[in-house]
Structures are given as C-alpha cells and as structure tokens.
C-alpha cells in the first residue's frame, strides 16, 4: 500500500498516510526529491562552500585600511566594491559567512539538544519531571530574546561568538521543547509504544529506540528554525552596534555602512551584498524547513500539488480539517 493512495475511503483511524511520519532511512533522499528543500539545500550548500573556501578567495585582509581605495563601486578589482575605509567588501562577505554559519549551526545544535532531551524526557516521565520542565520552558518562553541579548551584549566584556551562541540557544530552546514535548506526548500513548512495553523493552530503549526515530523530522525542523533565527538575531544585534567591532561579519559590514551613512552618499554596495548573503542563507534554510514539513506531512504534499509550487510559497497553508 502506498502512501499516496487516496485515503477518503478509509476511516481516519486507519489512514496510513496520516499516521506515517518521516522515517530515518531515506529521508535525506526524500528531502532531495522535494523541490523546495532541494532549492534550499542548493542555496545553503552554496553558502557552506563559500565559507569553506573563503580564505582562498578573499583577496586581501578584509579589515585593511586603504583610503586610496575607499568608497569604490563594484569592479573587477573589488567585486563587491569597497567600504569608506577602503576595505574589500567581497572578502568581508565571504569571510563573514563563516561566522554566520558556525554561529547558527552551533546555536541550533545546542538548543535542539536541550529541547529534545528535556521535551521528550518530560513527556515520557510525566509527573514531577514534566511539571518542572514545563515550568522551566514557560519561564524561558516569556523572556524576550532581543532585549535580553541587548542587555547582555551591553554588559558583557567579551561579546565573543561563544557567548552569543550560549545566549541564543538558551533563549530559543524553550519554544522547540514545547513542540517536541507535545509530539512525544502523542507518540507515548500510541499502541506501538505500549507494544514495546509489553515486549519488555526498557524505558531507555523505548524513548531513544522507538519514540525518537518518529520525531526526526520535527527535531531537524527545530534545528533549522533555531539556526536561521540565531543568524538573523546575531546580524540584527551587530547592525545595531552591539557586536564585536573588530570582527568580520555580515552584520558588522552593514553596521559600518550605516554608521558612515553610505546610502546618503549613493553607495548601495555595502548594504546590498551582505544583505543578499543573509537573504540567500535564510531563504535556503526556510525552504529546507518547508520541505521537511512537506515530506513528513503527506497532507501538505497534496496541498502543494493542488495549489502549485509558487502559490504555496506565498500563501499560508490551509490545514485540512
């Protein structure tokens, strides 16, 4: 029986498609087959490659001070033009990719590990553990991320990447923990979990061997979401001037462009290129997220087929009743 079979005939409880979540074997393949996530993977993959080969293609020290070459429009010599200090923007953008991607990935990883462990643990244990985790997530959920980060950035002496990662992860995990706990709760009472219990499986194996594999798509989605939110928040803070001014990053390039009123002088390039890099990365990650949603939810898959790819990107998803 195939997942794509029309299921109107079947009673809801027996609908195979609605019950089948994304499985581990072959899910990267499924993501590659989905047009949205494929596009996303291409975009993000491009940024990763750029970040990896950045030292080879950055033509000069990106913070070099060269007033003779200041405020130059894009040319063969300076592909993305230069800043008012005469630094090469192309080099800043390609090296900045390293910071953005590493920061996003690490914050995403940390938040996901926290959210998964606490969320699933809470759901499966229930009782006091659940209450405690719930309380903790609620506390973290009401903390406003950006103001907190502004305050922390203003107070901490070392506004290093490490600090940013930890703070971002700590403020973003709670939302994901909530979602993952919810999903684990619904899985916990499914018959196959009870069946594993009847078979004599230990709690540890039920949680990690039976429940978790059914949450892979949700966990991956959590990771991607935290990834791009962190990336945006970080760039935003830097743009506001709360970043480390000695470092190279997309946010810093934007910050300097703003501080030196580049636009007032008709210079579009210090904004356009780092901005474009941000857009490409975030768009890529969003597409991957949409793709994960689609391949793990057959209903969305049908929705898209009916409404066409472009419209489905623009319009909000109408969940079938």
């Amino acid at each position: 029986m195939s997942q794509l079979q029309p299921t109107i005939e079947l009673a809801p409880a027996t609908t195979p498609a609605a019950r089948t979540r994304l499985r581990i074997p072959g899910w990267p393949a499924l993501l590659l087959r989905n047009p949205k996530s494929r596009a996303g993977i291409v975009l993000v993959g491009f940024m990763v490659i750029v970040a990896l080969i950045a030292p080879l293609i950055s033509v000069s020290n990106p913070t070099d001070f060269n007033l003779l070459a200041a405020r130059q429009a894009p040319s063969w010599h300076h592909l993305f033009g230069t800043t008012d200090q005469g630094s090469d923007i192309f080099s800043q953008v390609v090296l900045g990719a390293r910071r953005s991607l590493v920061l996003g990935a690490l914050a995403g990883l940390l938040a996901t590990v926290l959210a998964t462990t606490l969320g699933v643990l809470a759901a499966y244990s229930g009782g006091v553990v659940d209450e405690a985790v719930n309380f903790l997530t609620n506390v973290f959920l009401v903390i406003p991320t950006i103001p907190l980060l502004v305050v922390i950035s203003a107070y901490l002496k070392s506004r290093s990447m490490g600090t940013m990662i930890v703070v971002l992860a700590l403020t973003l995990w709670a939302f994901e923990a909530r979602i993952l706990r919810g999903q684990a709760l619904s899985l916990k009472n499914r018959d196959f979990v009870l069946a594993a219990k009847v078979a004599g499986e230990s709690t540890w194996r039920i949680v990690f061997g039976e429940i978790m594999p059914n949450m892979i798509s949700r966990i991956a989605a959590a990771f991607v979401l935290v990834f791009y939110v962190s990336l945006l928040v970080d760039a935003g803070l830097e743009f506001l001037g709360l970043g480390d001014t000695t470092h190279v990053s997309w946010g810093m390039t934007l910050y300097w462009a703003q501080t030196n009123s580049a636009v007032l002088q008709g210079e579009w390039w210090p904004f356009l290129f780092p901005g474009l890099a941000l857009v490409i990365t975030v768009l890529g990650l969003t597409l991957i997220l949409a793709g994960i949603d689609e391949v793990s939810n057959p209903r969305l898959r049908d929705e898209v087929r009916r409404r066409g790819f472009l419209r489905s990107l623009v319009l909000p998803v109408r969940r079938a009743a």
Partner: peptide
Amino acid sequence: ESGCGKSTLGN
C-alpha cells in the same frame, strides 16, 4: 471492502 470505491461513489 475499504478502498473499493463505495464511499467515493456515495460522495
């Protein structure tokens, strides 16, 4: 049986 098209016919 389920999937034979009987509900589809009704609809």
